[in-house]
Write a protein that binds this DNA or RNA. Structure first.
Lengths: 229, 229
DNA sequence: AACAACTGCGAACGACGTTTGCAGTTTACA
DNA sequence: TGTAAACTGCAAACGTCGTTCGCAGTTGTT
């Protein structure tokens, strides 16, 4: 009974409520922060698939099994990585202007975050307990939406949908670029052929994200809010 | 040189252009269709993680290595599964009414497909060569959008965004339900606490999907199209 | 001093995707 | 018809993965 992982309680406990270390024993050679930092560096450079326990441990000069003194699973590590990345959205803007403007600004920040940490796209869809930074981000969105008079559930919907649409934009290039026609009989797809045969036309406007987010939030939330500043 | 996988050409060839089998040798005991069917049944029942080469082969009464006579990788299998599932969107509706109505109908069908094959949500985001059914679906969307006068790129954007938003709705329940507060100090999130303390208010209307898709497509495509029937 | 709770670490376990070698079967071509 | 090439199924193996285990050493409590 003296070999359980660090602070493991009687049951499946969340990583957020488990203390990093106890009071006895030698001072640990590493820390959760260092491990998460190494993992994020790896993910930024080579993608999420490169974040194996062995690789992260190797970057810290230790063995894979040693990491389990600091966290109890790889999923925990991904949760910690996600929460730290979400923390980079700080500092949160004041809600002085129109709430719609502020929300669109937040969406832009999210889009930029997906740019600096592309692996977030592979991670946000997993069901996982939200960490303190994710909760803080959510709390901040609710603060901005405070003047909006509507059920809380609708605000939750709007926030989640905004994050989702931003993630769609973040991987937009990969989605359409996935079309390839190697050795495929194209005669069955007349409209597709016609579309590619025509000149492509002007590229879509750069404010597509802005317009989409505005339209989305305006459709999901009532615009007759109380107060504008 | 006589032991290469089935029909493997000189280079990395797409699964769509590789013949299922050659002319010599015994008649195969299985087929791509049977393998894909077993894999989809497994994924429907136990999720995509249950679709291992060993499990699929086991369902067919053979060994994992034998599957490589029919396909060259697990990714190929996922591509085949995806394309067959997309094929279930047929038959495609006539484009007689308003194109917006027809597109929303297609979106509803996609949403239903995500319901019967939840593993599609874990699969659509991978970069992969689109199969014939995916191309047919795309071609059909272009046919419906034919009366819309705008650059082809904008139509591509709109189709991809509609699919993306539908996928967001498909996993909506899991997204917000992922919030849990086990052993977390909530005093740092005042708006979150206030939101949960208040009565939840009426549930969001059931036509949320409809309204969102309509707003999205109206925002992405010009509505002054030529002809309505 | 004794014991419990911790530390690092290397070896191992089971599952995964994939490769390989081999024996047997069918077709193409001389 | 004979032979070689191309195919078949299959079992065993390879390397990687996440994770567990056992052991020796260190620290804190009593």
């Amino acid at each position: 009974m003296s070999d359980a992982p660090a602070g493991a309680g009687p049951d499946r406990q969340s990583i957020w409520s488990r203390p990093e270390r106890g009071t006895r024993g030698p001072t640990p050679a590493h820390s959760r922060d260092a491990i998460v930092g190494a993992a994020i560096a790896l993910a930024d450079a080579e993608g999420l698939a490169a974040v194996s326990m062995r690789a992260v441990a190797g970057a810290l000069g230790t063995g894979a099994g040693s990491l389990y003194r600091y966290l109890s699973s790889r999923d925990d590590l991904l949760d910690l990585m996600t929460d730290r990345a979400v923390g980079e959205l700080r500092p949160y803007p004041q809600a002085r202007g129109d709430w719609l403007d502020t929300m669109v600004l937040l969406g832009r920040r999210q889009l930029a975050l997906f740019g600096t940490h592309p692996w977030l796209l592979d991670v946000i869809h997993r069901p996982s307990g939200a960490g303190p930074e994710s909760l803080a981000w959510f709390d901040n969105c609710l603060r901005i939406l405070e003047p909006v008079r509507c059920p809380v559930a609708a605000k939750f919907e709007a926030i989640a949908m905004m994050t989702g649409v931003v993630s769609l934009f973040a991987r937009r290039e990969a989605a359409v670029g996935g079309l390839s026609f190697d050795g495929i009989d194209l005669t069955a797809y007349p409209h597709l052929v016609a579309a590619f045969g025509r000149p492509p036309g002007p590229a879509p406007r750069g404010d597509l994200v802005e317009r989409t987010l505005r339209g989305l939030l305006r459709g999901l939330l009532p615009t007759e809010s109380t107060g504008t500043g």
